[in-house]
Design a protein around this nucleic acid. Structure first.
Length: 425
RNA sequence: GGAGGUGUCGCAUAGUGGCCUAGUGCGCCCGCCUGCUAAGCGGGUUGAGGAUAAAACCUCUCGCGGGUUCAAAUCCCGCCACCUCCGCCA
């Protein structure tokens, strides 16, 4: 949710953001009208309510017949107050519903357009030339099966399509990635967190995951709970309805959790292997910071992602996601995509978003405004970014494979895997 | 799952239908006093929204949501959280 005051004060900026996203800009005028309607009905209600209250004191003081007369008189006001309150409530709800439909206002200067309109900011490292090395690279699943690391067949037997078992060195490799990520996060001052993966609907809503992509989310109907697709949700809800002290800098958490995604609408895409699955594990950075510090914090999160990618020694590129591909909460999003040799293209390994005050506003996360002498509050900014996921196994296996099907473990992972080379069983 | 209890302004507490515009103590902030500190004295101290050039001011907020009433922290219903006990279970 964005600040209604921004719509009032700078509607053109909001319209421009909607245009860049390829979304309806007429909603801005609808919001302005609804805001006007809310304020006038609120004023009307408050005026009569004040009248009712002062009249109530006269009733309390009166006795006998006089009191009976006053009570009768007060009755009429009471009905009218109820009516006005009802219409003021309706007007507020109407405005709220409209404002909640509005995605975050984009950071100025990011690319306009949709999925394919991203800008490549940087390419790091070069893909290996397997032809020059004299062998055809195997894809991650073939390697995974050869190494006894990935079992898709039994995953499907037990849970259906897009489920899998990580076995033996596969399980060790996943734990290694996640533990390396947690270790790095701790080193940089993050608080490690193991989060709930079932959350209430208001937290799911607040984090912004039930708007455009609600069909991506698993829902437990009997309990009115949702399975989270990332620990970002629980970490955003962690400080809901609190006033934080950010005077010592951002509050940074590293969440470790299983992640669940329905992958509705991706039938036929990435059906092979563990690139696109219903359940995986992730270590996610999450930061609460001051709004004016958010863009810098975003760069810091990106920096920590790059540090992790350097440790697994894979070629990758960084893209600046186009406005129309952001989703509701982010104002800007950087993805790091690793080279996947057998696909001949880059695939997302990390994603870092600056949600500015969008999530915090919905979740009621505030701080004392350092610019205010009266100690008023304001909403904080929230950001998130990936430090490691199950999918990283794909990039590691394919980029570090050798002609005999063995895989060299990147040095930084070796203490966590406990092996220098993974060899076919 | 069942029974009982509790939920008030940062903390502790008072408040059983109108005098609550929610009192008091502690803590915290500002000031006075004072060689310094403490004590003492005076004032301030939930959050949200509206109004305003800014204020004064107005409305809402006593776990959350409904209801009764001219009037609700107070009465009624539902929900949630916590505590105690019983049962069941990893």
């Amino acid at each position: 949710m964005i600040d209604i005051r921004l719509v009032r004060e700078d509607p053109e900026r909001v319209r421009a953001s909607q245009r860049a996203r390829g979304e309806d800009e007429g909603i801005v005028d609808a919001i302005l009208a609804a805001d006007e309607a809310r304020r006038s009905s609120l004023t009307e209600f408050e005026r009569l309510r004040a009248e009712q209250k002062s009249f109530g004191k006269q009733v309390a003081a009166a006795k006998g017949e006089e009191k009976a007369a006053l009570v009768a008189q007060a009755k009429a006001t009471s009905d009218k107050v109820k009516q006005l309150q009802a219409s003021a409530d309706t007007a507020s709800e109407d405005l709220d519903a409209l404002v909640r439909r509005l995605p975050n206002v984009i950071e100025e200067g990011i690319p306009s357009g949709g999925e394919d309109d991203y800008a490549v900011l940087e390419t790091v490292g070069a893909p290996r030339d397997f032809a020059a090395e004299g062998f055809e690279p195997r894809d991650h699943l073939e390697l995974g099966e050869l190494l006894g690391a990935i079992d898709m067949e039994r995953g499907a037997k037990v849970s259906g399509a897009r489920f899998y078992f990580l076995t033996g060195v596969g399980a060790r490799l996943e734990l290694a990635i996640l533990n390396l990520a947690i270790a790095q996060a701790i080193e940089h001052g993050f608080t490690p967190m193991i989060t709930p993966t079932l959350v209430k609907s208001d937290v799911m809503h607040g984090a912004g995951f039930l708007d455009a992509h609600a069909d991506e989310v698993y829902r437990l109907d009997d309990d009115d709970l949702y399975l989270t697709g990332t620990s970002e949700v629980a970490l955003a809800g962690y400080h809901a309805d609190e006033i934080l002290d950010l005077s010592d800098g951002p509050k940074r958490y590293a969440g470790w959790s299983a992640c669940y995604r329905r992958e509705a609408g991706s039938y036929g895409k990435d059906t092979r292997g563990i690139i696109r699955v219903h359940q995986f594990q992730k270590v996610e950075m999450f930061s609460y910071c001051r709004p004016e510090d958010a863009a810098d914090e975003h760069q810091r999160l990106l920096g920590w992602e790059r540090e992790m990618l350097a440790k697994i020694e894979v070629p990758y590129r960084i893209i600046d996601t186009a406005a129309g591909d952001l989703g509701g909460p982010p104002a800007r999003k950087f993805d790091c995509e690793a080279w996947v040799p057998t696909q001949g293209r880059y695939r997302e390994l990390t994603s870092t978003s600056n949600c500015t005050t969008y999530q915090a506003r919905r979740l009621g996360i505030r701080e004392r405004d350092p610019n205010s002498e009266k100690g008023t509050t304001r909403h904080v900014a929230t950001l998130n970014g990936t430090l490691g996921t199950t999918r990283w196994i794909v990039a590691i296996l394919e980029n570090h494979q050798q002609a005999d099907g063995s895989v060299v473990v990147p040095e930084a992972l070796r203490p966590y895997v406990g092996l220098d080379v993974l060899r076919p069983a």
